[in-house]
Simulated scan of single mutants.
Amino acid sequence: MAPATNTPRDYLELKKQRQIVFYPAGDTNFTLYEDDGISAKYQKGEYAQTRITSQLADNNLTIKLERTQGEYEGFDPEKVTELDIRTKKAPVAIEVKVGNDEVQLTEVNSIEEFEKQANCFYFDQHYLTNPYLKEFNPKLEQSFLRMKISQTDVVQTDLTVNITGVDDTPVAVNKIPAVNDTVAIPVELKQDETQTTDTAISVLWEPVLRSESYQLKIDHLLYTNIKKPQFTLNSLKPDTLHEFQVRVVTEKGVSAWSPKVNFKTKIQVEKEK
């Protein structure tokens, strides 16, 4: 990753840093590639590569950045390294080795402190892979352990990190409540003939009181987060039959599915020449 920049010149000022984002999951590996970003000299072997591996066993995570191999014009081996690791909980312990030397990281309490210092870590509960996303949807924030290791020669030294206490438990998004038999099933699921065409089927049903949303099962495919008691399925073929069911989502749970109903698109009418 790299901070957002507005011009290529701005990006050149970031050559002394590297930022890697991890979503821990078993054994993983990746090769970080870089070249001058301008010429075709990479075709002659002028580029650099860094192999990165990670192993997550229970709640123990090991990350290794091997020595960078290769170079290109303008390559600067002296780099600050930032590791951003997705975890729901703050770590129990962190061990860092640059080459054979142990490095002590200091915990900081704000992103402002983290950005000003090196050899530090911060448990960021409002992490965004792209900070510009915040103005669109604050729910995209995640919990990340952020670590920054001071400038080192990445050609001469490798970097190993051991973290105890990583929690990679997935967070459910748009989790649907369990079926509740007391929730009324939507009724009167029918075709809206005024909106149905040879390539679209429009359906409607009676609204359910205090509904949060509706779901449709159409030809065994699930359509969710439907806010109104109506829906139009597009991009169909003329004179074809399709199976529909509907259920409602409420704070008490979801209803059972309504009975299956088949609706057909209209027959295509050829236009006169």
Rank of each mutant, 00 (worst) to 15 (best):
L145W: 01
K16S: 15
Y23H: 11
E188Q: 12
D101F: 00
I20P: 02
I176L: 12
F244D: 07
K134I: 11
K64W: 02
C120K: 09
E188Y: 09
T232F: 03
E270Q: 14
F231P: 04
V154W: 00
I267E: 14
L128N: 12
Q151T: 14
L236D: 08
K41L: 07
L236I: 06
S150C: 07
L140G: 05
M147Q: 07
Y223T: 08
A90G: 10
V249F: 10
A200D: 10
P8F: 06
V261H: 12
L216C: 02
Y214C: 04
E193L: 09
L140V: 08
A178Q: 13
R146F: 07
P24G: 03
K175A: 15
F244M: 09
N262V: 04
R51F: 15
T106H: 06
P8M: 00
L216H: 01
Y11T: 04
A48H: 06
I163P: 05
Y214W: 07
T265H: 07
I85G: 03
P77I: 01
R51T: 09
R51P: 12
V179A: 03
N262M: 13
L233Q: 11
Y23Q: 15
V166H: 01
V208Y: 01
K175W: 02
L12C: 12
T106R: 12
T182V: 08
R18A: 01
T224K: 14
Y11D: 05
F231C: 05
F22T: 04
T250S: 08
S213T: 12
E135I: 13
V161E: 01
L128E: 03
E212C: 04
R18W: 09
I94F: 04
D219Q: 03
S150M: 00
R67M: 05
E78M: 03
E73S: 15
K139Y: 08
L159I: 01
T196Q: 04
I267D: 15
N60V: 09
H126Q: 15
K116N: 05
I267R: 14
E102P: 06
I226G: 03
D158L: 00
Q125M: 06
V179H: 06
F114G: 00
K139S: 14
P186R: 05
A178M: 08
T81H: 04
Y214F: 10
K190R: 15
Q230E: 10
V246Q: 05
P91W: 02
A256R: 12
S39W: 03
E212R: 15
A172I: 10
F136D: 05
A93F: 00
